[in-house]
């Protein structure tokens, strides 16, 4: 189902970002952030292109991409569900909510559902502790949840 993200158009946008950042020191991180936005992930072909144009060894780029949780190697699901497991949320039992979402979407924590529709992540604290426990679906945020609310939310997507 993964639609072909490695289009020429995307690589052109990547090229522009690299040209913009080439001179700057520590350019790799901003470029990787852009690449993650453009492609939805940073696969081998993209890392190779960045390595050639930015002059950073491929092994170093692979090390950086696999270090930070925001960068992914494979495309994620259409909807990325993030259940916050910050302490404030965890203490107000976010764990059962996470288990429920996993159960309903068929996506394991950190994985993507077989139909590629949902990716499920246990995210770090996103700073909305006033709404604990919190769940995000791409940009939308749902706060002050109980396990019962989960089916309603998942059904919406």
């Amino acid at each position: 189902m993964a639609k072909n993200i490695l289009t020429e158009e995307n690589f052109l946008r990547l090229h522009k970002t690299i040209q913009l950042n080439r001179g700057k020191k520590g350019a790799l991180m901003p470029v990787l952030h852009e690449a993650q936005k453009i492609f939805g992930c940073i696969p081998l072909e993209v890392q190779k292109r960045i390595s050639e144009e930015l002059g950073v060894p491929l092994s170093e780029i692979y090390g950086v991409v696999t270090f930070y949780s925001q960068f992914t190697l494979e495309p994620r699901g259409e909807y990325v569900i993030g259940v916050c497991l910050g302490t404030a949320c965890y203490v107000k039992n976010a764990q059962p909510i996470l288990d429920k979402v996993a159960e309903l979407t068929g996506a394991s924590v950190g994985g993507t559902s077989p139909d590629g529709k949902f990716s499920l992540e246990a995210t770090r604290c996103i700073g909305a502790c006033g709404l604990a426990p919190v769940l995000t679906v791409n940009e939308d945020v749902y706060g002050r949840l109980v396990v019962g609310d989960v089916p309603g939310i998942v059904a919406k997507y």
Binding site: M29, L32, Y68
Partner: peptide, 8 residues
């Protein structure tokens, strides 16, 4: 501004 990328 330099963005972090998810590493405590």
């Amino acid at each position: 501004i330099r963005l972090g990328a998810g590493a405590f």
